[in-house]
């Protein structure tokens, strides 16, 4: 493996694998979905470059959501969330920022707009961040978030999930997604999950329980690999002047 910066052109996004913009089952998308086709072009330097984040900016508890809000432990099932950031070529993506946010064990967010009856945990802020190591690996210590109801249909519930924001080496790889938990019966019922048309794509957002990395009498582990757009590694160019 080399630490040389990635410079190749980005692979086109497979838009059939991602959710379309207009998904009436998820009502808010109806007025927020562009109605015109996206203008598709090969990536340029503006997408192939991106900001870099050093591990030196991280505080000791930044990836420990159990302790990082007040220093006193948050309540709920302790868990490790870990995995690798890879690209479509299966190469590790090192030194990139991974940020997460989530509800507490009762399914309540620390946000004034969240009016769910479940109580706030005074010791849980619900956000963390880390930078992948040279092998593209990341890990968080957190509590398993609860499911929660949300105003969409009259009785819609979000499955347990952790929101994830990831950077790549290029700004065009920028991605926000959500991790779900293996075996959660709410996954197939969720209108946000079901914005994704392909069952296999939904499965790729479902983290398996990872007993190998669970710690007895301490916490369970869930493994979640994140795949960013690939960068072409062959440099034979046959582009017309410009693009």
């Amino acid at each position: 493996m080399t630490d040389a910066p990635s410079t190749g052109p980005l692979l086109a996004r497979n838009r059939l694998w991602h959710p379309p913009a207009y998904t009436p089952g998820y009502k808010t998308s109806v007025t927020r979905a562009p109605s015109r086709a996206l203008i598709a072009l090969p990536s340029t330097l503006s997408e192939e470059t991106g900001p870099a984040f050093g591990r030196d900016m991280l505080g000791e508890l930044d990836n420990n959501l159990i302790l990082n809000f007040t220093g006193e432990p948050a309540q709920g099932p302790r868990m490790i969330m870990h995995g690798r950031v890879l690209d479509e070529m299966a190469r590790p993506v090192p030194h990139v920022l991974v940020e997460i946010w989530q509800a507490n064990a009762g399914g309540r967010y620390r946000h004034k707009k969240d009016g769910y009856a479940a109580p706030l945990d005074p010791n849980f802020g619900g956000c963390g961040r880390t930078v992948t190591n040279a092998a593209g690996e990341y890990e968080f210590l957190t509590i398993r978030p609860g499911p929660y109801p949300w105003p969409n249909g009259p009785n819609d519930w979000r499955p347990m999930h952790i929101h994830i924001s990831v950077f790549g080496s290029g700004f065009g790889q920028r991605l926000i997604t959500q991790m779900y938990f293996e075996g959660d019966p709410l996954i197939p019922l969720c209108p946000i999950v079901n914005t994704i048309p392909d069952k296999a794509a939904i499965e790729s957002l479902t983290a398996p329980l990872d007993m190998q990395n669970s710690i007895g009498m301490d916490c369970l582990a869930w493994k979640f690999d994140i795949v960013l757009r690939g960068r072409r590694q062959t440099y034979f160019e046959n582009r017309k002047e410009g693009l």
């Binding site: 694998w17 991602h18 998820y26 479509e88 946010w101 802020g125 956000c127 929101h163 924001s165 957002l205």
Partner: peptide, 24 residues
Amino acid sequence: LKETPSQTAGPYVHIGLTPNLLGN
């Protein structure tokens, strides 16, 4: 590999990305 599918940032994205601005 296939790219991880996107999901909406949702209504609480500021908890994760701008916690100080939000008041957390």
